[in-house]
């Protein structure tokens, strides 16, 4: 069963959207994970709850909130207009939706790995002459790396599967926002869409499996078994 050029385009768009989502979400997720793992402050429970909202809210609600935020008069829309960027009904909007939905999973994985880093090792680095930043880059980050990697792959897999928030926020536009799940949904509506659904669904399975296997291999190679496994 050969994939048509249009279907390959859908796969490439999905990869593009998911990679952009992870690239944007990873620094944010790391920052939030660090704050939640290391700082104590009033309102921490509130921040923790906000980060986890996309995990428990109906994705349609997230999509609707994004629509309000990024409408031309919304706060996000005004901000992006300054840079001349338009995300409504564009693939960039699909990436934003995927990033927001993937964020809680990434924060959870990274936070766990940061909490597993022994602060006594960081103290030892300080007594050996390393400042805060050097201690972070030479001790904390390398020890947390397998978890960060696992978080990124988990977020990537989640982004590939994103449906509800995407279709609500940026609709289902061929060659712009029609990623794999949206294409499968569209094909299901067509009387002759059965074989396309099969091909696209198998592709989704293959991509997700590849991501998980890659994560496992990377975490083995980098940590020789020091935690941070997805599988």
């Amino acid at each position: 069963m050969g994939m048509t050029a249009e279907e390959w385009g859908i796969v490439m768009l999905s990869l593009q959207v998911s990679l952009a989502a992870i690239a944007g979400a990873l620094p944010v997720a790391f920052g939030l994970a660090w704050i939640l793992a290391r700082l104590r402050f009033p309102g921490k429970i509130l921040l923790d709850g906000l980060v986890h909202l996309p995990l428990v809210l109906p994705p349609v609600v997230i999509g609707w909130l994004l629509l309000i935020a990024f409408a031309p008069e919304g706060p996000g829309g005004r901000l992006l207009a300054v840079f001349g960027v338009d995300v409504l009904f564009r693939w960039t909007g699909a990436a934003i939706a995927a990033a927001v939905m993937a964020l809680p999973l990434m924060v959870r994985a990274i936070r766990l790995s940061l909490e597993a880093v022994d602060p006594r090792l960081e103290q030892a680095a300080r007594t050996l002459g390393a400042g805060r930043w050097r201690t972070f880059t030479t001790i904390t980050l390398p020890l947390a790396a397998p978890g960060v990697l696992a978080g990124a792959v988990l977020g990537f897999a989640r982004s590939l599967g994103e449906f509800g928030a995407t279709i609500t926020f940026v609709s289902n536009i061929p060659e712009e926002t029609r990623t794999l799940p949206l294409a499968i949904y569209a094909a299901l509506q067509l009387p002759e869409g059965d074989s396309a659904v099969w091909r696209l669904a198998l592709m989704a399975v293959a991509l997700s499996l590849a991501a998980l296997v890659a994560s496992e291999a990377l975490s083995r190679a980098s940590g020789s078994g020091r935690g941070g496994h997805v599988l």
Binding site: D118, R120, T127, G131
Partner: peptide, 15 residues
């Protein structure tokens, strides 16, 4: 800060 005290610390748990 610890990094400017120039002390050689040998911890009980080695670290």
């Amino acid at each position: 800060p610890p990094e400017r005290r120039m002390c050689g610390m040998v911890f009980q748990d080695l670290r």
